[in-house]
Amino acid sequence: MPCLPALPPFPPEAADARGYRRVADAIVWLMRHAERQPTLAELAAALSVSESLLQREFTRLAGVSPKRFLQHLTVTAAKASLSGPGALLDHAYALGLSGGGRLYDHFVTLEAMTPGEYRDGGAGLALAWGVHDTAFGAALVAQSPRGVCLVHFLADGEAPGALLGQRWPKAAVRHDAAATAAVAARLFRPLAEPGAAPLALRVQGSNFQVQVWRALLALPYGALASYGQLAAAIGRPGAARAVGGAVGANPVACLIPCHRVIRAEGALSGYRWGAERKAGLIGLEAAHCLAGEVPDHA
Score class of each variant (00 low, 15 high):
Arg260Lys: 04
Pro237Ser: 03
Ala267Lys: 07
Asn207Pro: 15
Val210Asp: 06
Pro220Asp: 15
Pro251Ala: 04
Ala232Gly: 09
Ile256Val: 15
Ala232Cys: 15
His259Phe: 15
Val261Asn: 09
Pro257Ile: 00
Pro220Trp: 13
Gly266Pro: 12
Leu255Lys: 03
Pro251Asn: 03
Gly238Lys: 02
Arg241Thr: 04
Asn207Gly: 14
Ala264Asp: 15
Ala239Glu: 12
Ala249Val: 00
Ala249Tyr: 02
Gln209Ile: 00
Gly235Tyr: 08
Trp213Gly: 07
Ala267Arg: 13
Ala240Trp: 08
Gly238Val: 00
Val261Glu: 13
Leu230Cys: 12
Pro237Asn: 01
Ala242Gln: 10
Arg263Cys: 09
Leu199Gly: 03
Gly266Phe: 09
Gly238Glu: 05
Asn250Gln: 12
Gly228Lys: 10
Ala197Gln: 14
Ala215Met: 12
Ala223Leu: 05
Arg202Cys: 07
Gly238Met: 00
Ala197Ile: 01
Gln209Phe: 05
Ala242Asp: 10
Tyr221Lys: 09
Pro220Phe: 08
Val210Cys: 13
Ile262Lys: 03
Val252Ala: 14
Pro257Asp: 09
Arg214Glu: 15
Val203Leu: 13
Trp213Ala: 06
Ala200Asn: 09
Ala249Cys: 04
Val261Thr: 08
Val212Lys: 12
Val243Tyr: 09
Arg260Val: 02
Arg202Asn: 06
Gln229Ser: 12
Ala200Cys: 14
Ala233His: 14
Gln209Glu: 13
Phe208Trp: 09
Gly244Met: 02
Arg202Tyr: 11
Trp213Tyr: 07
Cys254Ala: 14
Ala240Glu: 12
Arg214Phe: 02
Ala223Ile: 00
Ser206Lys: 02
Tyr221Glu: 08
Arg236Lys: 09
Gly266Lys: 07
Ala231Met: 04
Arg214Pro: 07
Ala225Val: 02
Trp213His: 06
Ile262Val: 06
Ala231Trp: 06
Gly205Pro: 14
Ser206Val: 00
Leu217Asn: 10
Val212His: 05
Cys258Met: 07
Leu230Ala: 06
Leu230Trp: 12
Ala197Asn: 11
Ala264Val: 09
Val203Thr: 11
Tyr227Thr: 01
Arg236Asn: 03
Val212Phe: 10
His259Pro: 08
Ala240Lys: 12
Val247Trp: 13
Ala246Val: 00
Gln204Ile: 05
Val203His: 11
Ile256Gly: 12
Pro198Tyr: 01
Gly266Met: 09
Gly248Ser: 11
Leu216Gly: 13
Leu199Phe: 04
Ala225Arg: 04
Leu255Gln: 04
Arg260Cys: 07
Val261Trp: 11
Tyr227Cys: 03
Leu199Asp: 13
Gly222Lys: 04
Val243Cys: 04
Ala249Pro: 10
Gly238Trp: 02
Ala231His: 05
Cys258Gln: 13
Arg260Glu: 08
Ala233Leu: 13
Val243Leu: 10
Ala218Trp: 11
Ile234Phe: 06
Arg202Glu: 11
His259Thr: 01
Leu217Val: 05
Gly245Gln: 04
Cys254Phe: 09
Ala231Thr: 00
Pro251Cys: 07
Ala233Pro: 15
Tyr221Gln: 02
Val247Asp: 10
Ala264Ile: 06
Arg236Pro: 07
Asn250Ala: 14
Gln211Gly: 14
Cys254Thr: 04
Ala215Lys: 15
